[in-house]
Amino acid sequence: HEITLHINGRRVKLRFRDEKAAEILKEAAKKGLDEEELKKLAEELWR
């Protein structure tokens, strides 16, 4: 699955395995994680 989040006016595509991962990524984006941090988090969730 993929999700596209808008971060600092940019579109960031993240891959994720399940809905739980999608929710975690959305929450992290709301908390203000930047693009690099979100990509790292997405990679961690993928494993």
Rank of each mutant, 00 (worst) to 15 (best):
A29L: 09
R15Q: 08
G9Q: 03
L41E: 01
K31I: 11
T4G: 03
I24S: 06
E19A: 14
I7R: 02
V12P: 00
K31G: 11
K40M: 13
L33K: 08
E2L: 10
R11S: 15
K30V: 10
I7T: 04
L41N: 00
H1I: 12
W46H: 03
H1C: 09
D34Q: 14
R15P: 12
A28R: 05
A29Y: 11
E43N: 07
E44H: 09
G9L: 01
H6Y: 08
A42S: 07
E27T: 08
K20M: 13
K31D: 10
L38D: 00
E27L: 09
A21S: 15
G9E: 04
K26R: 14
E2H: 12
E19N: 11
L33M: 14
I7G: 02
L5Q: 00
E44F: 11
K39W: 11
I7A: 06
K39V: 15
D18I: 03
K31L: 12
G9I: 01
R11E: 15
K20G: 14
E19G: 09
H6R: 08
K31T: 12
A29D: 02
A42N: 04
L38T: 02
A29C: 09
H6L: 11
A22E: 08
E36Y: 13
L25Y: 03
R11A: 15
K39R: 13
L41C: 03
L25A: 03
K13W: 01
E35Y: 11
E2C: 11
E36W: 12
E2N: 06
H6S: 09
R47P: 05
K39Y: 13
E23V: 11
I3S: 01
L41V: 05
I7Q: 03
H1L: 11
A22D: 02
E2G: 03
A22Q: 08
N8T: 04
N8P: 02
L14A: 03
L38G: 00
K20V: 12
I3A: 02
K39H: 12
G9R: 01
D34K: 09
E37T: 10
I24F: 07
L33W: 14
E19K: 08
R11N: 15
L33P: 02
R47Q: 15
E23A: 11
K20C: 07
A29V: 10
D18L: 02
H1W: 12
I3F: 05
K40I: 13
N8Y: 02
D34E: 11
A22F: 10
K30G: 11
K13Y: 04
G32P: 04
R10G: 07
E37W: 09
E23P: 02
E27F: 04
K26G: 06
K30C: 15
T4Q: 07
E44V: 11
R15W: 06
H6Q: 11
E44C: 08
E27R: 08
T4Y: 10
K13R: 12
E37P: 05
